[in-house]
Write a protein that binds this DNA or RNA. Structure first.
Length: 360
DNA sequence: GAAACGTGGGC
DNA sequence: TGCCCAAGTTT
């Protein structure tokens, strides 16, 4: 601790990059709800649940969902036994709803065919629904401390900078994977996996990386060149198309709203929505609203529109509202304070709020 | 390989 | 304001 590079330094082994990263991790690891205490074994169920939730989703967003899921379904057997609609309801707002459908399916498979235990190998994990190359490696490493090369957005960025990889993503994937494999240690592979993700999340960030705090500063070609932020290079992305539709908010005399279930597969699969037109590539003609509406009635167009940006298109919804004397049994009628009990995705929550806000 | 698949926050 | 980004997987 007190030794400086000087003449009377004790003889020590030259540390590897992995050792330097692990030493940094031991001092600076993040405290996350799904992380076991230092030196304690991780619970594979907890690791799996967190990894699925964290796919393309930030730590801050996942936090409350993870806690809620574990409270509702403390063991994988509980999750396997739960109705899918309950799982989708608890997942509502997190996005990428195929994750929730696969989560439930994976739990069922594990309980039915594997005694409720996770495989400890990447190959075994890869066979399970919703578990791809990254997640299989992550669970294998973190939950079972098996050597596995994880390659996620963080690791891609770190490797691309360490070696100033010029190939743009996604083409560079295998090149980056090969680099990442060279760093993965035989000792503490689970801690190493979490360490390199912590490094990417807190030090080697997309913009303004904190190189002055980085344990790999002296190993990094991009730092030496001073061009960290140009890596990883990325292929240009296509423009985001626009789609347009009408939504129909029906309210009965008790203030309940008519909802229906979307098809089980595809966009927002299995989730609940307000009746809607198709979502097309050009604005709809308002005079067609009556024919597109789910029922006849006095439909009132509300001011403004709801704009919701999905990954692959931006959606513009014009909202119509009508009050109904009779609650059509084809729909599920839900009061506003009960909306938390149904699987309402964010786009539809916006539509409902827009409808209620404009009405009152 | 490319496209489908959500959402909210940061700059 | 619009673009980028976040512990990717499936088809």
């Amino acid at each position: 601790m007190t030794s400086k590079s000087g003449s009377r330094r004790q003889p020590t082994a030259i540390s590897s990059p992995a050792e330097r990263l692990l030493a940094w991790y031991d001092r600076h690891r993040r405290h996350l709800p799904w992380r076991s205490a230092p030196g304690e074994a991780a619970d594979p169920y907890h690791v799996w649940l967190s990894e699925i939730m964290l796919q393309q989703t930030t730590v801050v967003t996942v936090g409350p969902y993870y806690t809620d899921f574990l409270t509702r379904w403390p063991r994988i057997e509980d999750l396997a036994a739960a109705p899918l609609d309950d799982v989708l309801t608890a997942w509502a707002g997190l996005g990428y709803y195929a994750r929730a459908r696969n989560l439930k399916k994976c739990a069922e498979v594990l309980v039915a065919d594997h005694g409720g235990r996770f495989p400890d190998t990447e190959a075994g994990l890869l066979d399970l629904p919703g578990i791809g190359p990254y997640t299989a490696a992550a669970i294998s490493a973190i939950a079972f401390d098996r050597k596995a090369t994880i390659l996620d957005g963080n690791v891609e960025r770190v490797m691309a900078r360490l070696h100033r990889v010029e190939t743009p993503l996604p083409k560079a994937k295998e090149e980056l994977r090969a680099l990442a494999a060279r760093y993965t240690p035989d000792l503490r592979p689970g801690d190493y996996a979490q360490a390199i993700m912590d490094l990417g999340a807190t030090i080697c960030t997309p913009t303004k990386p904190k190189c002055f705090l980085c344990p790999w500063r002296e190993d990094c070609a991009a730092h030496a060149a001073g061009d960290m932020e140009v890596y990883p290079k990325k292929s240009p992305k296509a423009a985001r198309p626009q789609r347009f539709g009408f939504c129909f908010v029906m309210i009965d005399k008790d203030g309940r709203i008519a909802l229906e279930k979307r098809p089980e597969k595809g966009l927002l699969g299995g989730m609940v929505q307000v009746p809607t037109s198709d979502w097309l590539g050009a604005p709809l003609d308002v005079t067609d609203a009556t024919s597109l509406a789910p029922v006849k009635g006095k439909w009132r167009q509300l001011d403004g529109s709801v704009i919701h940006v999905f990954t692959h298109f931006a959606l513009h919804l014009t909202v119509f509202a009508a009050t109904c004397v009779k609650a059509d049994p084809r729909y599920q009628w839900v009061s506003v304070d009960q909306l938390g009990t149904v699987a309402l995705p964010s786009v539809m929550r916006k539509v409902v709020e827009h409808g209620l806000g404009k009405l009152s």
